[in-house]
Each structure stands twice: as C-alpha cells, then as structure tokens.
C-alpha cells in the first residue's frame, strides 16, 4: 500500500452532509473486477447530466478545482454501502486526503487500507476550510500525518486525532495481511481450542 506522510495539494469544497457511497461511485460501475480505473466514474451522477454532459456547477467540473487532491466535505461522509470502490475511485481521481467532521466507519477503514487519509476536524474548522477553498483561487492545504496537523499558507492550523495503529499503518504503508500472518501460531492455537460445533458439516 502507498504510504501517507505529508501531502500538500489543492483543496476542493463539497459542502454536503451524509454523502453516501452510492453517490461517490454509483452501482453501474461496480461490475468491474479490477481495483483501478474508477476515477472517471467518481460522483458520476453529480458530475454528468442525464445525457452525459458535464454539469458545469458541480465543484469538480469547475476549472479552478482541476487537479484537486484534498476534498473538504460535510459530516458522515461515506455512509451506506461498504463498497471499497468508493476510496478506489477517490484515489484514482487523485484525492489523497478527505477532511470532514465525521466519517462512516466502514468507509473510513476502507480509506486507510488504500492510503487515503480520512481527517476528522471539528465542524467549525471544516466550515472555515470550506469558506477558504471557495473564496481563494488555487487554495493549497498541507496535511501532515507525522505531526497530525492541517495547515494553509494564510495561518490556518488545526490538529487532528488518529488512532496510533492506523497512523503507523499509513505512515509506513504496511502490508495488512503480512502483519497478521506473523501471528500464525496464535491463529492455529485458537483454531485448536475452538468449539467443534462451530465448523459446519462439509457441503
């Protein structure tokens, strides 16, 4: 997995709460069997009208936010379906960090497994960042996971919390399965003491 230490990039504001994963990547694009190539379908129903033309008012279609790599958005981002295609689409589009007052649990876990950093900041800080990203051209933010802080060049500075293990995992870009397989012995020992009735009869 791609590690995340410090990332500086253009920020785009998506001022909506409860953005669900059906919006992030609609179901008609879930039938592929690869992990890549989903960026073109990100927020598809918001980016394109029914006849397939770009919606000029949608934030990601505005030329000033082209190349954005940090998304600022409302609470409960990523709710709904567990589809990991959502962080795959965000990453493939170019987003490395998402800043919101809160995230849905499964989505947040899925992000950290793919090197996308979910940053939780208080509601008023997020509101301030939304305002700045809307009113400043080429608004750049620096997201620093080592120091657990978000800053801009105009004096904004906020600290965020992240669980130590997830942080280490992202900083070092660890291999999740490899890490668990170091505990082979414990797993085998557990299997030996497991109740027999828990293993279903063979099909």
């Amino acid at each position: 997995m791609q590690a995340f230490r410090i990332h500086t990039g253009k920020a785009a504001p998506l001022d909506r709460a409860n953005v669900d994963t059906d919006q992030i990547i609609p179901k008609q694009f879930l039938k592929r069997i690869e992990r890549s190539g989903y960026g073109q379908f990100l927020f598809y129903d918001w980016r394109y009208s029914a006849d397939g033309k770009p919606e000029p008012f949608f934030v990601l279609n505005q030329p000033r936010y082209a190349g954005a790599s940090i998304l600022i958005t409302g609470r409960n981002f990523g709710c709904g379906s567990s589809r990991e295609h959502a962080p795959w689409a965000l990453l493939d589009y170019g987003f490395r960090a998402i800043i919101a007052p809160s995230f849905a649990d499964i989505f947040s876990t899925n992000c950290t497994k793919n090197g996308v950093l979910p940053v939780v900041l208080p509601e008023n800080d997020v509101a301030e960042l939304l305002r700045r990203a809307e009113s400043t051209d080429n608004y750049l933010l620096a997201v620093d996971l080592e120091k657990k802080q978000v800053s801009d060049e105009a004096g904004f500075l906020a600290h965020f919390d992240m669980d130590d293990f997830k942080r280490k995992f992202l900083l070092e870009g660890l291999d999740d399965i490899g890490l668990t397989l170091q505990h082979q012995k414990s797993i085998t020992a557990y299997e030996q003491r497991r109740r027999a009735f828990l293993t279903p009869p063979a099909v």
């Binding site: 567990s82 589809r83 990991e84 499964i106 876990t109 899925n110 497994k113 793919n114 999740d176 399965i177 668990t180």
Partner: peptide, 8 residues
C-alpha cells in the same frame, strides 16, 4: 467489511 478486509 470492505474488499481489502475480505482478502484479509
């Protein structure tokens, strides 16, 4: 769970 966890 997500797909990475399915693999795990």
């Amino acid at each position: 769970i997500g797909t990475s966890e399915v693999e795990h």
